[in-house]
Design a binder for these strands. Structure first.
Length: 266
DNA sequence: TATCCAATAT
DNA sequence: TATATTGGAT
């Protein structure tokens, strides 16, 4: 019964397609004209020199992928609309993507964790400043609620709604969690267990399998944060690869969504 | 200009 | 519901 409670994380993690698996799919979906039509590239990405440790797609290749997505969004009836006015599909914050986000925040420290720097550190192509800003806003609210009762993983779900926090709860909290300026002395705790999420609504059945609905009981995150890297690695040394694979999907609604898969291993 | 934050829209 | 967008404030 409760085995699945402790396995849900591992389950969806296994289900996540690897970038390599997705690559051919994305490429198949691309039409060259759309690739040309959509020319968006992060204009203010300072182009960190990253050794392609994990090479999944060349930058040219996923520029094409991005192009396709933009093009498809307007392809129904809007044949000649300039790319800049086209709406991008909504970004889906997969647990992997969110984890990279959290990693970036953790490395930067609360102080420096602003959308611009986070976006740079994440180095996920296709991510926009607004994507990050919006997510960061939500994430901060989440952290704020968590801090109220941060310790044991079995407290009442005072501020946490399992129905809305499953994504955030799926990723370890940044070690410094809350400790803004403080001389910037990098006092990082060894690790911080994610405060448990407690549910009270028995019916958390969602259609989002990847997020995994947290059990309606108190549960503890079934893994230990193992990503404690050297505190505050400055950008430029060992950043994540900037590659990412993305996939466009169509929800039941007919709405397009954009899913970015950072290629780092998690 | 970039950011924050709340409200609102999709 | 999750994410995007907007607008006012700093």
């Amino acid at each position: 019964m409760r085995e699945e409670d402790s396995n849900w994380f591992a389950k969806w993690e296994e289900e996540l397609p690897s970038p390599k698996e997705l690559m051919p799919l994305s490429q198949t979906l691309i039409t060259p004209n759309l690739a040309i039509a959509f020319d968006i590239q992060n204009p203010n990405t300072p182009n960190p020199k990253i050794s392609p440790l994990v090479h999944t797609l060349s930058s040219t290749e996923f520029e094409s992928n991005l192009a396709e997505l933009g093009g498809m969004a307007g392809s129904s009836g809007v044949g000649d609309e300039p790319a800049r006015t086209q709406k991008r599909p909504r970004l889906v914050w997969t647990p992997q993507l969110h984890k990279r986000f959290v990693d970036a925040v953790a490395q930067l420290g609360i102080k420096n964790a602003v959308p611009k720097t986070i976006m740079q550190l994440m180095s996920v192509d296709g991510l926009t400043h607004e994507n990050v800003a919006s997510h960061l806003q939500k994430y901060r609210l989440y952290l704020k609620r968590m801090q109220g009762f941060s310790n044991s993983g079995s407290v009442y779900g005072a501020g946490v709604d399992p129905a809305t926090d499953h994504l955030f709860a799926s990723s370890p909290l940044p070690a410094h969690f809350l400790h803004p300026g403080r001389g910037n002395s990098d006092h990082y705790m060894p690790f911080v267990p994610v405060a448990a999420v407690i549910g009270h609504a028995p019916q958390l059945q969602q259609q989002y399998r990847h997020f995994g609905s947290p059990p309606n009981r108190q549960f503890e995150v079934p893994f230990l944060p193992r990503q404690l890297q050297q505190p505050v690695q400055r950008m430029g040394t060992s950043v994540h690869s900037s590659s990412s694979v993305l996939e466009s999907a169509t929800a039941a609604n007919g709405k397009k969504v954009l899913t970015l898969f950072p290629n780092g291993d998690d």
